[in-house]
Each structure stands twice: as structure tokens, then as C-alpha cells.
């Protein structure tokens, strides 16, 4: 495993820890999109089905279990435990416009016309756009808690770091996963606007504000 992949996975774990930590310390899920978290749960379950029939490494299995369980737990926290602070009218992105096209793209572009491969591709497309309800919500409220912005930043950083990892693997291992690269680039582009605003507010010590 190369340094970019390792750093990407660390950023992903850090993002989940920030998310859970901020929910537990503030006892609130204010500003968090339940829809985005449900989409991530769908992403992880559809992508990591191979957990049951293919062993890659202990690291790989452990991380898959961690992502599936932490995403289900997050959905539980938002939907059940702290649901009093949900403002449903703010989190009103139409997720069918993300789920439908992701499934069609997974159906059209895959490495084999089998259910696991279609679901795997679907999960990549869906992951690329799953943050949109959260960003949409941020844009509507205009402001975000510092921890929420750190969470989104770490999450965006994860896929961004996978891009140099794919370059590395292309040259060092002669391995190239065109679907992962394409969806990873789309995902990073979706975050790019956020990265820029985050960069400006984080380095000037200002409260995070979207224009």
C-alpha cells in the first residue's frame, strides 16, 4: 500500500471520527444531512458485499466492517437519537436524482454484467455525488459549524488522495481502474468549490460561510 492510499484511508477514518465526535459532544445533529448519511450507507453496503465471499486482507475486511457499521450508526444517531434537532425542510434534496442516474451508470459501465459488479459500479457513481444533499443544505443555511466543515473537508480529502494513489498504481503496479479514477475525479471536482471556501475561511480564522 502506497502513502497516498494510506493517507486517503486515514482521512476517511478521521472524517467519520470527527462526525461522530461532534454529534456526541454537541448532542445535536444540527446542520448534518440525513440524506447524505443514508446514501453513504447504501454506498458501503452495495460496494462491500464481497466481504462475504472474497477475502483480500485483514485490513481490507476490518475497514469494510468499520465503514458499514459506522454509517449505520450515524444514520441511527441522526434519525432516532437526536432527531429533535432535524429541520427537515432544510434537508430536502431530491435523492432520486442521484440514485436513479447512479444505477443507470452502474448498469451501463461495469467490469462484468453480474450483480456484484453492477452494484460495485453503482456505489462508485453514488459515492461521487452522495455529498450533494449535505452541500445543498450548507448552501441553504449559509453557515456551518466548524466541526461540520472539518468533516466535509476530511471526507473530500479522502477521495482526492486516492487520485495520486491511482497514478502511483498505474506506474508502479501497471494497474488502472478507469471507473474508480473517473468517479473519483468527479467526486473531487464536486468538492473543489467547498475546498476553496474552506481554505479561505480556515486560514483567516473566519466562521465558515458560503456565498
Amino acid at each position: 500500500m502506497n502513502i497516498f492510499r494510506m493517507a486517503g484511508d486515514v482521512a476517511h477514518i478521521v472524517s467519520i471520527i470527527i462526525l461522530l465526535h461532534s454529534i456526541e459532544t454537541t448532542q445535536s445533529v444540527n446542520g448534518l444531512s440525513l440524506k447524505t448519511q443514508v446514501l453513504y450507507t447504501i454506498v458501503f453496503i452495495s460496494r462491500y458485499l464481497d466481504l462475504f465471499y472474497r477475502y483480500i486482507s485483514l485490513y481490507n475486511s476490518f475497514m469494510k466492517v468499520f465503514y458499514i457499521s459506522s454509517s449505520i450508526y450515524t444514520v441511527y444517531l441522526i434519525a432516532n437519537k437526536y432527531n429533535k434537532s432535524i429541520k427537515e425542510h432544510v434537508d430536502n434534496f431530491e435523492v432520486k436524482y442521484l440514485l436513479g442516474p447512479s444505477f443507470i451508470l452502474g448498469f451501463l459501465f461495469n467490469y462484468g454484467f453480474t450483480l456484484p459488479e453492477i452494484l460495485w459500479s453503482f456505489s462508485l457513481w453514488l459515492e461521487a455525488v452522495a455529498i450533494l444533499p449535505q452541500l445543498f443544505m450548507l448552501q441553504k443555511t449559509g453557515e456551518a459549524e466548524v466541526l461540520t466543515t472539518h468533516y466535509i473537508f476530511a471526507l473530500g480529502l479522502y477521495r482526492a488522495l486516492y487520485i495520486p494513489n491511482w497514478f502511483y498504481r498505474y506506474f508502479a503496479e501497471d494497474k488502472f481502474d478507469k471507473l474508480a479514477v473517473l468517479t473519483g475525479i468527479i467526486q473531487t471536482v464536486i468538492y473543489s468549490d467547498f475546498f476553496y471556501i474552506y481554505y479561505k475561511s480556515a486560514f483567516k480564522g473566519k466562521k465558515f460561510k458560503l456565498p
Binding site: 492510499r5 484511508d9 476517511h12 460496494r47 464481497d50 483480500i56 486482507s57 481490507n60 475497514m63 469494510k64 465503514y67 467490469y111 462484468g112 459488479e117 460495485w120 486516492y162 494513489n165 498505474y170 501497471d174 494497474k175 488502472f176 481502474d177 478507469k178 474508480a180
Partner: peptide
């Protein structure tokens, strides 16, 4: 380059 169908990434 080999096509990556092992899906060893997360």
C-alpha cells in the same frame, strides 16, 4: 495496464 477487477480498494 491490467484492468482492476479485484476491487482491493475501499
Amino acid at each position: 495496464a491490467r484492468q482492476a477487477t479485484e476491487h482491493d480498494e475501499l
